[in-house]
């Protein structure tokens, strides 16, 4: 069904486009300023050699930053009409979705790379427990992939990038916050809604606990969002 070559060609083109336009640099700069400031503003007050406060805020920051990364993936193509050219090239719709998704995810991973310097700094200051750090970064990649898939789906809905950004942000933000507002809900539904919360699963992995339930949650969220994006562009025909 998939031709790896086609996916790679689309992936390369999309990733290259991020870096030939100013978007990549602006988004990475904003991300680093936000995370750096939130992390170091309290770091020396607590005097703990850990990255917990960085990972605590990451889902919220991701729910704003990732939709900004993914908003152009389909919307821009719909808007300028290049989508017509893309679809009439010999690539399948699923290959297009997958190539764009991979480009977005790799971009998010590249955005995380400079934050490794926080871990290294903290490592020099004292005894850093690397377990939660490794778990946190793994979780961040899984979370990033899931949010990228959601953002990609949002982008496939409209040719307006701003609307794509807002839809993506609302969905990501809801997924992050849903387990924080459980006190509004009847007790019988708590478990279900807690399981839906992206932050709940992310904080588990960020403690250094690798639970298959959390991994399956992120992978299935990614898959569902990609599948919806694929259905959406099939229906467009």
């Amino acid at each position: 069904m998939f031709m790896a070559g086609n996916v790679i060609n689309i992936f390369k083109k999309e990733l290259r486009t991020y870096f030939t336009t100013p978007i990549a640099y602006i988004v990475i700069a904003i991300f680093l300023v936000l995370t750096g400031w939130f992390f170091f503003s309290t770091f020396f007050l607590f005097g703990q050699t850990e990255l917990r406060s960085f990972f605590t805020l990451l889902p919220i920051i991701f729910s704003f930053v990732i939709p900004a990364v993914t908003m152009r993936l389909f919307s821009e193509e719909f808007n300028i009409g290049s989508y017509e050219i893309l679809v009439t090239l010999p690539v399948s719709l699923n290959e297009i979705v997958l190539g764009k998704f991979l480009a977005g995810t790799v971009f998010v991973a590249m955005m995380l790379v400079p934050t490794l310097s926080y871990a290294i700094c903290v490592g020099f200051l004292g005894q850093l427990d690397w377990g939660p750090v490794v778990g946190g970064y793994l979780g961040a990649l899984l979370l990033g992939a899931a949010f990228t898939a959601v953002g990609l789906f949002a982008s496939s809905l409209t040719k307006n990038q701003i609307i794509a950004f807002i839809i993506g942000m609302i969905v990501c933000f809801t997924l992050t916050m849903v387990d924080k507002v459980l006190f509004f809900l009847p007790e019988s539904m708590l478990g279900f809604f807690q399981f839906l919360g992206a932050d709940y699963h992310f904080q588990n992995t960020a403690k250094g606990i690798l639970d298959s339930r959390d991994i399956i949650y992120f992978l299935s969220a990614t898959f569902i969002a990609l599948y919806m994006a694929s259905l959406r562009i099939q229906e467009k025909q």
């Binding site: 086609n6 030939t20 300028i80 050219i85």
Partner: peptide, 24 residues
């Protein structure tokens, strides 16, 4: 297509290169 809706941010050479790659 009508109006040749090409990717605006790409160089002509890069674009043709990309099309060649996708065309196998």
């Amino acid at each position: 297509p009508e109006e040749a809706p090409l990717y605006k941010d790409m160089l002509v050479y890069d674009y043709l290169n990309y099309v060649a790659a996708v065309r196998g």
